[in-house]
């Protein structure tokens, strides 16, 4: 899974999708996940990193992670290459 190349995420949590012209706002955790997705980190790498940094267990994180990426998919911010 990859974030579309042309999507820009600003420091203020503003996401602009030039393909659709839509803009979004995201929170800090969402921003960090998006940054890691852009760096092509695997879900496992993301999970490990986030659970180290935040007060959250792996199972709970996984649940929120898939909910979040589901939203990214719904908003078509993801390159569907598979």
């Amino acid at each position: 899974m990859q974030i579309k190349k042309n999507i820009a995420v600003s420091e203020t949590g503003f996401v602009f999708d030039p393909t659709s012209g839509e803009s979004y706002s995201i929170n800090k955790v969402g921003q960090e996940i998006m940054a890691m997705l852009k760096d092509e980190k695997t879900p496992q790498e993301i999970r490990t990193r986030m659970c180290e940094q935040y007060d959250i267990d792996q199972a709970s994180f996984e649940k929120y992670y898939y909910d979040f990426t589901g939203m990214l998919r719904q908003f078509q911010l993801i390159e569907e290459d598979e």
Partner: peptide, 11 residues
């Protein structure tokens, strides 16, 4: 520009 829109929307 979208940057103006961004500024207003986030700040």
């Amino acid at each position: 520009d979208v940057r103006e829109f961004e500024k207003l929307s986030t700040l």
